[in-house]
Each structure stands twice: as structure tokens, then as C-alpha cells.
Design a protein around this nucleic acid. Sequence first.
RNA 1: GGAGAGGUGGCUGAGUGGUCGAAAGCGUCGGUUUGCUAAACCGAUGACCGGGUAACUGGUCCGCAGGUUCGAAUCCUGUCCUCUCCGCCA
Length: 425
Amino acid sequence: MLDRKFVLENIDLVKQNCVHRGAKVDLDQFVALETRRKQQQIEVDDLNRRANEVSKSIGKAQDAAERELRKEEGRQLREQTTAAQAEFDALAAESENLLRLVPNLSHPQAPIGADDSANPTLRYGQHEPRRFDFKPLDHVVLGERLNLFDFEGGSKVTGHGFYFLKNDAVLLELALQQYAINLLIAEGFTPTITPDLAQNKILQGIGFIPRGPETQIYSIADSDLSLVATAEITLGGLLADTILDAEALPIKLCGISHCYRTEAGAHGRASRGLYRVHQFTKVEMFAFTLPDESEKMLDYFCGLEGRIFDGLEIPYRVVDTATGDLGGPAYRKFDLEAWMPGRGAAGEYGEVTSTSNCTDYQARRLAIRYRHKQEKGTHFVHTLNGTAVAISRAIIAVLENHQQADGSIRVPKVLQPYLGKERIG
RNA sequence: GGAGAGGUGGCUGAGUGGUCGAAAGCGUCGGUUUGCUAAACCGAUGACCGGGUAACUGGUCCGCAGGUUCGAAUCCUGUCCUCUCCGCCA
């Protein structure tokens, strides 16, 4: 959510940003509502003041008749106040609902464009796509041969888009988790395993829409809980309604959670095997920073994501996400796309991680503030999130990039200590 | 799941209908004193929304939501959370 005052004072800028973002919000309506809200506030304040004065005078009145008279006066004022307050509340709620739909501002250097076709590549990883002297297979075929997945079983037990990991794929999942978590611990992150469910108000604070036709979220019937789509939700929610000491910032957390996504409307798109599934495990990074430190933190997160995939010896490129592809909360976003040689006819890059600077957009919705010890007042922190490893997609990249002519998989060095072997199959 | 206790400012903790945004202590900040530090003493010290160039000023907030009342931290109802004991369970 943007700052009310800021939007009113920079309405043209905000409007233009909505166009770049592909967001349709009636900002003129917002301005009109705000004007009325302001007037209503003056009226409510005035009525309140008068009612308070009357109330106080009753305590001092000695004469019983006068007392009754003043009581009646107070009664009437209170009635008016209640009505005026109700109208104010309605206006405020209506304008806030609009405000919540306004996307975050965009970084001045974020490429302007409608979708991911506008994303320029910023850099490549340490490793170049390998030249195969045989036809590389995709992860589904590899997994079938090595007995690593059971998509039919997942489908039978749960439904399309669910799967069982089996045998060495289980070890691989655990190894990837440990590799990422240990790397992040060494970088000073506090590791967590978060709940897989969260309250809808937390989801909304982070910027997700728990229910409705476009939702990507599974919600729990007869409760206000939803399955999380990412640990970003739980890690950000962890400090909701908190005032932090400026000295305590930045706070770097990482968390393992399962991620549940309905992927509504995604049928028919490239979704073979593990690429687009309804449940996967993810190690997520999250940071709370001072406002002037968030850009640096974004680069740091992006660098860590690169280090993790360099370590896995997987080629990748980093792209700068275009405005139309940013999603509501992000001010700037970098995606890391790994080379997947089994994808498409001759291999393709596929998104494996993503990191965003959400500036104060989430902090404002979740009421996460900081305070300097010697200053009055509070400010909103900046929040950032980034994928360390989305296990399902990382498995794709590992299998496809490290496959051997005999159908086995070479385990990258960094995973060997966790997996306990140098080769799968 | 059953029984009990409790949720008040950065913290501890008073406060059972108006004079309470709220005692006191701690902490923090400023000052005085003092080789330095510490101690002592004096003073200041919540957040949010709004108005004002500013000094300042209006309103809201005592877990949350309702209710009673001219008036609620205080009375009533609901709800959430925490703690203790019992039961159950991984």
C-alpha cells in the first residue's frame, strides 16, 4: 500500500505508474473519496469535542434540572457523532480499498514493458550451457528411468499437479535445503521453518488475495486461514504490528516452507513434470531494512541467488523484470533463470528464483516500523524477499544439467556431503 | 478437551464510572555536580490520524469487537491470545 498523502500529492506519477504496471485502479474516485473523508473528519472532530465538553459540564452541574437538560443535549450530540463517525468510517474503508489496489511505485531503472518479453538480461552465471555429445533428456524422462518421481501416484492421491518424490529425489530435496540453509546461516541469516498456513490478513498484508476468481491461494474452509504460497508470507508476517529499533536493522531471516499454489489459469502453458506444480518446498530469504539500505540488500540477495546456482554448477541468467510483470508489492525485481537443457527443442531458460524489493509497501500494510533511539516518531521499514532455492525447479535444473550419457546424474560437489554420494543411478 | 488466572505506555505494575493518556518504579534522553566513568540530584519522556511556517493544537487508542451510559481502562456480552493445573496426543 502506498502512502495516502503521497498518492494525493503525486497523483499524475501514480497514474502513470499504474499504466506501466497494467493496473486498473480508479484514482479519480480515490481522490474524490479522500476529499470527502477529510471534510468528514473535521465534522467528526468538531462533534466529538462538543460532546466531550457537554459531558464534562454534567459532572460539575449541581442543579438536577440543569443536569437533565445537559444530559439530553449530550445524548443528541452523541447520536450525531455516531452517525458522522459511521459515515467517516465508510468513506475511509472505501478509499482504503482503492488504495490497496494501487501497485507499488517502480524503480526508475526498471524496464517499462507489458510482460516478461520486455525483461532484459543483466548478467550470466559462472557456468556456460554444456555441450552434450548426446541428446539431453528432460527431467521427467530422467526421473522415470531413475525412479525418482511418481506423478501418477500424486494424481491418484491428490490430483493433477501433485507428485511423490522417491528414492534419491528425496535425498536431493533434503540436500538442496541443507545446502541453501547452511550457506544462508553463514551469511548471518536466522534460519526458520515456518508454518505452512497463515491468516488471511497476513496474506493480504504481503499482497496476496486469498479468495476470489483470480486467487492463486488455497484457502481453508470455515476458517480465516490459507495455505501459504511462499514463506515470504510467514516471514514478513512474523514482524507485523512491530516497532523495531533502527539499530536492530537489517534483520535477515530465511525460512523453509511448503508452498501451495492453485496455478489457476495456468493449464496449457509449459507445465510438464515438476515445473509448475501445486506444492513444492522452498527456502526463502527475507529482510527488513532501513529505507536507504534496501537497494543494496536487493543486490545482495540477487548475488546470493547467483552464488547458490554457481555452486550447483548450473548456468543461468539474471533478468530485470519489466513493470508489467512486477506484481503489486515489488518496486524492483530480479529473476534468475536457470538453463534447462531438456526443456523445449534445444533447451530453454526457466525461472528458478526471484528477488524483490518491496520498499515500504508491505510494511505499511503490516504495520512494521522502526524507530531511532533518540528521535520521536516511527517510520516504515523496507522489506525484501528472495528465493534461495525452490526445490522442485532446482531439481529440474540439477537433473537436466548434470545428466550423463548413461542416464545417471552427477551430483554437484556442494551437494555431495548432504547426499552422501557422487552419482544418482 | 476440562478447570482456574491474566492481557494497561520501552519494561515492571497501580488504577472498579467523570478531575485518567493513565500513579509509582525501572529504562531512555537532557541538564547540574564531578579528573574520566559511576553515583546523586533536577527536568523531560507513548503511538496513530488531522490542522498550523512555528510555538502549538483537535481527535483516536488501556488485547480485539460489540453493548450499557450524557460520560467506560473501570460495568455487561462475545472473541482472540498468554500462563498454571488436569486430560489427550506425535
